[in-house]
Design a protein around this nucleic acid. Sequence first.
DNA 1: TGTTAAAACAAACAGTCGTTTGTTTTCTAT
DNA 2: ATAGAAAACAAACGACTGTTTGTTTTAACA
Lengths: 197, 197
Amino acid sequence: MAAHSTTPAPRQDNRRQQLLDTAARLFRQHGYHATSMRDIASAVGMLPGSIYYHFASKDELLVTVYREGVSRIAERLDAAVAGKKEPWQQLEAACIAHLQTVLDHSDYAQVVIRVLPDDAPAVRVRLAALRDQYEERFKDLVAALDLPAYVDRHYLRLLLLGALNWSQVWYRRGGDSPRTIAKRFLQVLHGIQAQQR
Amino acid sequence: MAAHSTTPAPRQDNRRQQLLDTAARLFRQHGYHATSMRDIASAVGMLPGSIYYHFASKDELLVTVYREGVSRIAERLDAAVAGKKEPWQQLEAACIAHLQTVLDHSDYAQVVIRVLPDDAPAVRVRLAALRDQYEERFKDLVAALDLPAYVDRHYLRLLLLGALNWSQVWYRRGGDSPRTIAKRFLQVLHGIQAQQR
DNA sequence: TGTTAAAACAAACAGTCGTTTGTTTTCTAT
DNA sequence: ATAGAAAACAAACGACTGTTTGTTTTAACA
């Protein structure tokens, strides 16, 4: 028996947050399909049915994780970019922030990259919209670059963002840091371009 | 054939091929987890249990599809590269072949990109080995390039291959062709040489 | 033709899935 | 102290999962 607890206990929805954190971690570790509601429940120490008090469905849980993921990575990116003036430096800061968040810092953000909208057909459109909302930022960053006429900005963005996102497939902790990886990528890009200036 | 041989019936197993084709199509359309043995069975018109005469397990079915996928994409790439002499042109031919195969031509090859080794933990190592076996080719292609010293060949490869593979996420039929996409990517990278032609 | 192996069927196994329902506990506010 | 909401439990629902088993059909060879 515990002593009589005098803590007022704010009765805030704190297990909801715990639930989200755990779902984000499991979704990024094993993917959406390979993570069951029972996995999540037992990881937070509650029964599977209890999750449905906090979230209407597994899909809704994913959407919430996704939204939080986009919010977090966007926040980090905006902060990083705000510190730079020169367009290439802004892009580099963005790439570093993106990779750090997506490879290391945030389970939420990792889910946004790892779990594709098609994995949850019923909420596909909402997930895709959240993704797009984030990727918009790269359009602006690329638009600000001073580039030779023959460089297609559309494909420069797809090239860079594709390489960054795919790095989740081969990245292993202990090798080059996300910052280093981002810098190398931009060196390859900017280096080849810059040699003719 | 088997004229006067006493060996038992050849009985070529043609439904095995049909089974593989169907599995490849469904795996690339919906992913590995979202495709059930019953889906595959009903698509070829047999009962779920009958698949197990041809394949020991769902995982083994995936491995076979994967192996075939690597074989097909490697074949196309080698043929494409063989027709070119200049290193950058070889790389371009390789990227075009890669994208065409992975976006359009082969369900098998698409599975190799779409289904990650982690999706089937029991055969993860074998799937990863098959992938690596293919990606080796890009190491050679990048090694042959004449590049400024500050360009890291390792990251050039990862940049390019990542962008190519990720294109599966955003590619839609009706837009730019795989050939065009590959060319635009390389133009971004190698703008100067591309300009000279 | 009869024999034999290949290849399919038919039916179930044991388990997991997301989810729902009814009840009980836990805490806050009165 | 007690009412009432919040948040959990306990147990099951029906559907679906990969797979196994025993039996039957199909087709090539003697």
